[in-house]
């Protein structure tokens, strides 16, 4: 094993061509992940609440819409948004934006169902008690239901976000220079050290994912007492 290939290209692995060129490597993976984690979280919350508050035809339409995004492979959605967004909006969307949109839509539709399931997991008596005190549906959701449901949903969010970090590697298909992309580049250029390179890349993904888990664990402990069910 010769890890000099890592040290020699370290800045390229971590930052891509930055500061002389566009940001890439692990840093770009991080940017893609954070942006799509936030966006998918917001989408998941909005659509999950919408699922919980709608009935009948509107509800079915929403389920169908979300099912569509859960059914198509991430890779395909990245391709689609890459070629469709320019047609729909009439201007070129940069690759990074495309990937964020695709990952957020997919992550958001998965999370919507987790949020919906979390809301439904609470006993109906909690809605009734809130209503009996004069709270409207939105107030009940905000002050009574979501504060109890969100801690239940945390593991689902975590799973989804970890999946999303790994899916960000699919950005390579449209030439976005994130971690996997630059790793492949270096490997192709150097030719002889694929083991070292991909071991190192695996380590980086592992570090990113575990720091997310550690962070979430800390949050869960901090708010854990309040989340205990009766």
């Amino acid at each position: 094993m010769d890890f000099s290939v890592i040290t020699n290209n370290l800045s390229y692995f971590l930052l891509g061509a930055w500061p002389h060129g566009p940001l890439g490597g692990a840093a770009l993976t991080l940017v893609l992940s954070v942006c799509s984690a936030l966006a998918s979280g917001v989408l998941g919350l909005v659509f999950g609440v919408a699922l919980a508050m709608t009935h009948g035809a509107a509800h079915q339409a929403l389920v169908l819409f979300l099912g569509f995004f859960r059914a198509i492979p991430v890779l395909m959605l990245i391709f689609w948004t890459y070629f469709l967004l320019p047609i729909v909006f009439g201007f070129n969307v940069p690759g990074v934006g495309t990937v964020i949109v695709a990952l957020s839509l997919i992550g958001g539709s998965y999370l919507a169902h987790s949020v919906y399931a979390g809301i439904r997991s609470l006993p109906p008596g909690q809605w009734q008690a809130a209503a009996a005190l004069g709270l409207g549906r939105v107030q009940a959701l905000r002050y009574v239901i979501l504060p109890q449901a969100l801690p239940i949903m945390l593991p689902s969010f975590l799973n989804q976000w970890i999946a999303l970090i790994k899916d960000s590697s699919l950005a390579y298909v449209i030439g976005v220079g994130e971690l996997s992309f630059v790793a492949t580049q270096v490997s192709n250029r150097e030719m002889v050290y694929p083991t070292e390179i991909f071991l190192f890349v695996a380590l980086l993904y592992f570090l990113i994912c575990s720091s997310l888990e550690l962070g979430a664990g800390a949050i869960a402990r901090r708010y854990g007492t309040a989340a205990k069910p009766t």
């Binding site: 909690q126 709270l135 109890q148």
Partner: peptide
């Protein structure tokens, strides 16, 4: 306006339904 009406009609349930959080 049902919420307004309910605000002044107290209700106590069999299973208490305090907000556990």
């Amino acid at each position: 306006n049902l919420p307004k009406l309910r605000a002044h009609v107290g209700m106590v349930f069999q299973s208490f339904e305090l907000f556990p959080h």
